[in-house]
Amino acid sequence: MIAYRIDRRSGVATYLQIVQQTRQALRLGLLEPGDKLPTAREVVEATAVNPNTVLKAYRELEREGLVEARRGLGTFVRRTLGPDADTGPLQAELAEWAARARKAGLGREDVAALCTAVLDSTYPEGEDR
């Protein structure tokens, strides 16, 4: 059984925290195809979040094709999430860029601010793909 941990101060929407923690469990192999997710009731009892929030998270996971709801049985994992194959070269480029930024005298926060600005313009509000 996966145990969701909700951080109310994180600024990340609660349903998104559930989605992200499920994805993370899939990446780490803590959940495999066929495994059952906790029922909404179980999540609500353990975390005291609104039931609709849990259902919204599960709908999102279903939309992504990661899980499927089987009527009367529960929600089950459909496929696993391996690390994406093409992130390697991207990470290398980013590391090179970060090294250049550091050499130019930028601190960690300067770099983080730059990244956030670029992310915000590349992925406009509400778009995560």
Partner: peptide, 27 residues
């Protein structure tokens, strides 16, 4: 948690007053 689970199971409408905003925000 128990309260919300019971409410979800029976479709109960719940109104709760509170000063503890943080606690209510997630629930």
């Amino acid at each position: 948690g128990t309260l919300l689970a019971e409410a979800a199971e029976h479709g109960t409408t719940v109104v709760m007053s509170s000063h503890i905003l943080g606690e209510l925000a997630g629930a």
